[in-house]
């Protein structure tokens, strides 16, 4: 399921160290020992984080070299990005609807019947514009 994969992506991203590792990997392929340096962490601790990132599909590790360099995978992040994009779409649609609604009520003020008291005040203001 896509939702499950997204959960894995998001929980992998939830850790600041893992985000920092990703930021480092965004600059290029790196071996585990190179990664461990700036984080002041043991190699096994870094490996643990890498395993989580790998499981979430955020990185891949080469089996070719003995150092098993890590590479960032844009696809999984793209999926997370698409998800936020949903919210952008939701707001775009919502604003489309607001636009249509504003058009309708301005074309036919009687349609504002749904609304209660503040009508008179609005008319007054409307006239001054």
């Amino acid at each position: 399921m896509q939702a499950d994969r997204l959960s894995a992506t998001f929980s992998a991203l939830a850790d600041p160290t893992r985000r920092a590792i990703l930021a480092r990997l965004a600059r290029g392929e790196t071996s585990v020992s190179e990664l461990a340096g700036p984080f002041k962490m043991s190699m096994p601790a870094v490996s643990k984080h890498l395993k989580v990132l790998e499981h979430a599909g955020l990185i891949t590790r080469s089996r070719a070299a003995q150092t098993r360099p890590c590479k960032i995978e844009a696809a999984a992040l793209k999926e997370a990005d698409d998800w936020l994009e949903e919210y952008r779409r939701l707001w775009e649609q919502r604003l489309d609807r607001l636009e249509d609604y504003l058009k309708a009520i301005q074309a036919n003020p009687a349609q504002q019947a749904a609304e209660s008291k503040p009508k008179a005040k609005e008319r007054r203001r409307g006239r001054t514009q």
Partner: peptide, 23 residues
């Protein structure tokens, strides 16, 4: 937000800090 919630919200921006120009 908790760390995880922040990450979810920020995930859409994570690719930008990673430098993918497309995004």
């Amino acid at each position: 937000p908790t760390d995880e919630e922040r990450a979810t919200f920020d995930a859409g921006h994570a690719s930008m800090t990673g430098g993918w120009s497309g995004t």
